[in-house]
Simulated scan of single mutants.
Amino acid sequence: MATAAIVILAGTDSHADLGRLVNGLETAAEFADNPNDEVALLFDGAGTQWIPELEDESHDYHALYRSIRNEVIVCDYCANAFGVDDIVDEADIITADENGGHPSIRSLVDDGSEIITF
C-alpha cells in the first residue's frame, strides 16, 4: 500500500506548465486506480489556476481530471490569491487551510504520504 500527495504547483502560463499538470494528473490517476493506495491531488500556489480550466468540459484533460476529482484538494489561501475561489466553491471542491490558510504539507508527511510535486 502506498500513500501519496500529488502537489500541482505549475501555473497556466506555458506549454511546460501544461506538461507538468498532465504528468501530475496521470500520476494521481495511477495511484487512484490501485485499490490499495491512497492519494490526494493538491492544487497549490499558481496551480490553483487550473481548476477553472479543468472544470470546463471542453478542456482536453477534463475527463482525466474528473476521473480523480474525488481526490482533489485546493489551497484555500491560494485559490483566493489567484482569483479562483468562486469557481472552487461552485465546484464544491474541498479546500485546505490548516497552516495559516495553506495546506499542511508537514501533516501529510506525518500521516505517511510521499509528497510528489509537479
Rank of each mutant, 00 (worst) to 15 (best):
D17V: 12
V109T: 12
G101R: 04
E38P: 07
V84H: 06
G24R: 05
D56E: 14
T27F: 00
H15S: 13
G83E: 03
A46M: 05
H15M: 07
N99R: 06
I87P: 05
N99Q: 08
T95A: 14
I116L: 11
I6T: 10
T27S: 00
L42Y: 06
E98L: 12
A79K: 00
R106A: 09
S67T: 07
I105P: 02
L41N: 00
L41G: 00
R66A: 14
A2N: 15
E38W: 10
V7C: 03
L64H: 03
D33C: 04
T117A: 02
L25E: 02
L108R: 12
L54N: 08
E30C: 11
T117Q: 06
I8L: 12
T3D: 11
E90L: 13
P103H: 12
T27E: 00
D86R: 15
A91C: 10
V7I: 11
D89S: 12
V39A: 05
S107C: 08
I115S: 01
R106Y: 06
A5S: 14
S67R: 02
I6A: 06
L21Y: 00
F43L: 06
N23T: 05
F118T: 03
D33R: 13
C75T: 05
T48N: 04
E90F: 12
G112V: 06
V22K: 08
I87M: 07
F82C: 11
D76Y: 07
I8F: 07
V39L: 07
Q49T: 02
D111G: 09
D13T: 14
D56R: 13
S107E: 15
G24A: 03
A96W: 02
E53L: 13
R69C: 06
T12A: 13
A4P: 15
L9W: 04
G100R: 01
T12K: 15
F118I: 00
I87N: 02
A4R: 15
N99C: 06
D85C: 04
A63R: 11
